[in-house]
C-alpha cells in the first residue's frame, strides 16, 4: 500500500485530532461548567464572597468560605484540579444566611472560583488565587 505525501500528511493530522479530542471531551473546563450551571446566562463579577487563605501549606485541607446575599445556590470550582468541580451548595427555605464553609483539596497553586445563583435568577462570580505549598491529590 503506497501513500502519497499528501495522504500521509492527512493521516497524521487525523490521528492528532483523534488523540486531542477525547481529552477535551471528558475534562470539562471551568467555563463549560459555569455555562452548564448558569444555562448560558450572563455572569456578573462580584456579589459573592469567597474566603480562602492566600497561602495554603497543605493542599489536602484548605478551608474556604462562600457567601452571597440572597443566593439560592453557590457552586465552587477549582480551576487547576484534575476535576474542577468541588461542591455546590443549595440553600433551602430555612437557611439562615447563604453562607457555608468547608475544607477542600487543591492540587496546586490555582484559582478557586465561586459562582452564585441569586434568587432572582441572576448570576455572580468571584475568584481567588490560592498558593499551595504541598498539593493534595496524592501521587
Amino acid at each position: 500500500m503506497d501513500f502519497t505525501r499528501r495522504e500521509t500528511l492527512a493521516l497524521g493530522a487525523g490521528a492528532a485530532a483523534l488523540t486531542v479530542l477525547p481529552a477535551s471531551a471528558f475534562a470539562a473546563t471551568v467555563d463549560e461548567l459555569i455555562a452548564e450551571f448558569t444555562g448560558g446566562a450572563d455572569v456578573a463579577d462580584g456579589g459573592v464572597t469567597l474566603n480562602a487563605p492566600e497561602i495554603a501549606e497543605n493542599g489536602n485541607t484548605v478551608p474556604i468560605e462562600v457567601a452571597a446575599d440572597g443566593a439560592a445556590s453557590i457552586m465552587v470550582l477549582a480551576a487547576g484540579n484534575p476535576t474542577p468541580p468541588v461542591a455546590t451548595f443549595h440553600f433551602g427555605p430555612l437557611a439562615g444566611a447563604s453562607r457555608a464553609s468547608t475544607r477542600i483539596r487543591l492540587a496546586g497553586t490555582q484559582d478557586v472560583v465561586a459562582v452564585a445563583k441569586m434568587a432572582d435568577g441572576s448570576f455572580a462570580r468571584t475568584s481567588k488565587e490560592v498558593k499551595v505549598t504541598i498539593g493534595g491529590c496524592g501521587g
Binding site: T88, H90, P93
Partner: peptide, 24 residues
C-alpha cells in the same frame, strides 16, 4: 422536614468532610 442546605460534593472535598452553615 424543611430543607436548610443541600450540598453536592465532588472528590475535591477533603477527608472527613466538614461543613459549617446557618439555620433558622
Amino acid at each position: 422536614g424543611q430543607n436548610v442546605i443541600d450540598v453536592t460534593m465532588e472528590p475535591a472535598i477533603s477527608t472527613n468532610p466538614y461543613f459549617e452553615f446557618e439555620a433558622t
